[in-house]
Amino acid sequence: MKLSCSFDVTRFPVDQHTCYFRMGPLFLPKSVYKIQSREDHAQLEFYIDHDQWELIRPLKTYVNELTWLSGEGTQEFVAEVRIKRRSLYYLIVLICPNILIYLLSSLVFFLPVDSGEKVGFIMTILLAEIVTVGTLNDIFPASSLGFPVLAYLISAITVHLSMLCVATVTVVNVHHYTDDHVSDKIRKIVSSKHLRKLHLTPKIEQLKTRKASRAPKASLCKQDTLKSGVEFDDKSDEDSNYFQSGMKLDAQRVWGLFATTLDRFFSLVHFIATAVVLGYFYFRY
């Protein structure tokens, strides 16, 4: 005898299913026969454990009464079978490697842009994730009724890593930008004291200084910073050391500071997105 049961694989690979197997004559009334169950559970002395499924004991059995339209009744024997998937294999082979790759992608923000390894590192991480996705066809159950949450997680990780590659290439490209023209928006971003308080904009080092008289010190500072293409708020006590001896920054240095700001902003967005994705996956399971 071969029996079948439909599964909801939304919580794969930690899914649990309940199947009901009904046996009995379909058109004979209960006046002709009578089904009796001696016990409320089945005997499992001869049951052999399965390597992928675990049978949840006890296996309940009972007799169900049915009534036809004519008023006559019949009986059926019902066995309630509950099974749970053994998830250790999927935990080691599928879940842990993907989450580990996902967490390792955060290390790209700890690599300096000048090292030249940022793009190569994140591309390697993305390639490793894509290779892992290519092996999932033989692991995921082929079902569209209840799509696994784990499949959504792996898809979200792949999209996230792809966007991280785009962000990394953008940061490296901006860092090595050689245009001498710097727009006003970039000047405001680099010189913003609010972003500096949030540690999104790095503190600017004094590259070249020149002597200035102390009497018109404030006006000279403003003139020199306007020539450099970067303006600062002289009302901030934190930025007062930036006006010592009239600091001057070239365009290449400004592009480097702007690239560092972008890198820190992308890292903040990345950590928030990682927490949201992993938190959603955890609470759905």
Score class of each variant (00 low, 15 high):
residue 189 I to Y: 13
residue 181 H to M: 12
residue 167 A to M: 04
residue 190 V to R: 04
residue 218 A to L: 13
residue 238 E to H: 09
residue 197 K to Y: 09
residue 213 S to N: 03
residue 242 Y to H: 10
residue 184 D to G: 12
residue 210 R to E: 07
residue 194 H to Q: 09
residue 198 L to W: 02
residue 215 A to Y: 06
residue 177 Y to R: 13
residue 158 T to V: 01
residue 238 E to Q: 11
residue 216 P to S: 00
residue 248 K to I: 08
residue 199 H to L: 14
residue 207 L to V: 10
residue 199 H to E: 11
residue 158 T to E: 02
residue 184 D to C: 12
residue 240 S to P: 03
residue 159 V to G: 08
residue 237 D to T: 07
residue 206 Q to D: 14
residue 234 D to N: 07
residue 216 P to W: 00
residue 160 H to D: 08
residue 246 G to Y: 08
residue 162 S to D: 01
residue 174 V to Y: 09
residue 188 K to M: 05
residue 168 T to S: 02
residue 240 S to H: 11
residue 161 L to R: 05
residue 226 L to G: 03
residue 168 T to V: 08
residue 183 S to V: 05
residue 167 A to L: 01
residue 228 S to M: 00
residue 205 E to R: 14
residue 171 V to P: 00
residue 239 D to Y: 13
residue 221 C to I: 09
residue 241 N to E: 15
residue 228 S to Y: 05
residue 178 T to F: 08
residue 157 I to G: 00
residue 202 P to I: 07
residue 244 Q to F: 15
residue 235 K to R: 15
residue 205 E to C: 07
residue 243 F to E: 09
residue 184 D to S: 15
residue 215 A to T: 06
residue 248 K to G: 01
residue 234 D to F: 13
residue 225 T to S: 12
residue 174 V to W: 06
residue 245 S to W: 08
residue 192 S to H: 10
residue 231 E to Y: 11
residue 180 D to A: 13
residue 202 P to H: 13
residue 244 Q to C: 06
residue 245 S to M: 11
residue 177 Y to V: 04
residue 234 D to C: 08
residue 187 R to G: 10
residue 218 A to V: 08
residue 161 L to G: 03
residue 184 D to N: 14
residue 225 T to H: 15
residue 163 M to K: 03
residue 200 L to E: 04
